[in-house]
Amino acid sequence: MSNYLVKPFLKWAGGKRQLIKEIKNYIPKYTTYYEPFLGGGAILFALQPKQAVINDSNEELINCYRVIKDSVEALIEDLRKHKNESEYYYDIRQWDRNYDYEKKSSVERASRLIFLNKTCYNGLFRVNSQGQFNVPFGKYKNPNILEESLLISIHHYLNNNKIEILNTDFKEAVKTAKQGDFVYFDPPYDPLSDTAYFTAYDINCFNQDEQKRLKLTVDDLTRRKCQVLLSNADTPFIRELYKDYKIVTVSASRFINSNKFKRGKVNEVLVINDHYTNS
């Protein structure tokens, strides 16, 4: 039975919270759940699989999940010290520009990421080409920096089930997937236009070459008789790339963007391979 208290602890651009009901219609029966682009974990926490391999290329994000799993009490204690003040915010944001950042403990780094996510402008996680967090202070009146019961609930979920947490390439993350397993891909989306606003979530650029490499991985998983579901933008490039697969159009609301005029309803696609066991 799922624990309703287990849900995303971060706001994450491209997160799937408002598409959970739609995506659940396409979740098959499976043995092990794989999610190579974990992000905020909305689908993971909605499904709460007993056996899963989760991954993201963002090292700071994955550090957060590992700290919640292994050191949640220390994380909660560290989160208590943060202040919703502009000068303090920029001091904390500055950490990854300092030479001694790598000397910070995993708990301090996880606490920093959660604090910045809760207090930065529009809850947007963005880094520059050097991998430095560069979102301005959000000026929120009373942000909920510490959600103690939520963190504890996630801690229990990660420890009471067989959840492997990786920080590697998406192809490497699914190398152990086999027939009967289910892989959900939610990669950085193909831009809706050549001039579409691009936000970097880590220092790795996910361009069309990477989209093509991902498609080859989907092909390989299909040959291995794994069940695959992929989310992406509804663009001519993506439709052509996956023309040999079943494609379902869904409507999504996007609320996290630095440009308020680029928030709202947009079409997305779900790409489905032919090894499903659901009805």
Rank of each mutant, 00 (worst) to 15 (best):
L150Y: 06
Y121H: 04
L10F: 07
Q211M: 11
Y65A: 09
Y65Q: 13
K262I: 04
T199W: 00
S71K: 13
G15D: 00
N58P: 14
V72C: 12
T168Q: 12
T217S: 14
R80E: 07
R213W: 00
Q130Y: 11
S251D: 12
N278H: 07
S193M: 09
L214S: 05
L5N: 02
K29H: 07
N161D: 10
E108T: 04
T222G: 09
I54M: 15
P8H: 02
A110H: 01
V266C: 03
L79G: 12
D181M: 02
Q48W: 12
S149A: 14
L166Y: 06
V248N: 10
W12K: 02
P191N: 06
K81W: 11
P36Y: 00
N160D: 14
A13W: 01
N278R: 04
Y157C: 10
S251L: 05
E172K: 15
K141M: 12
C120E: 00
S2V: 10
N25R: 11
I272W: 10
E87S: 15
E102D: 15
N58I: 14
I272F: 10
N25E: 14
T277L: 05
K141V: 12
K21C: 01
P28F: 05
F45Q: 04
N278F: 09
S86H: 13
I76N: 10
E240F: 09
I272G: 06
K141Q: 14
P36M: 04
Y90N: 04
Y276V: 01
K141C: 11
Y189L: 07
D219S: 13
V53S: 15
L113R: 00
F198V: 15
R93Q: 11
N159A: 06
Q132A: 01
V67Q: 08
C205D: 15
A252M: 03
I145N: 09
N58F: 14
L47M: 09
G138T: 09
S153V: 02
E172C: 13
A200T: 07
G264Q: 06
N259P: 00
D194F: 10
L270V: 03
A200W: 04
Y184C: 10
K225T: 01
E108R: 01
L5V: 03
Y4P: 07
A74P: 01
D100G: 03
I165G: 09
F237R: 07
S2C: 06
L166G: 05
R213T: 10
S193A: 09
D190R: 07
A110Q: 00
R93C: 03
H82L: 05
M1W: 05
D209F: 03
S106I: 07
R112P: 00
N142H: 14
N58W: 13
W12Y: 09
F255E: 12
L113P: 01
I68C: 13
Y101M: 09
N134V: 00
G264M: 06
P36V: 01
R224W: 00
F125P: 00
F45R: 02
V72Q: 06
Y33W: 01
K260V: 07
E35Y: 01
E85H: 12
I114D: 02
Q211C: 10
I238H: 08
C205Y: 15
G41K: 04
N3T: 07
Y276N: 05
V6K: 07
L166T: 06
D244H: 14
N160V: 04
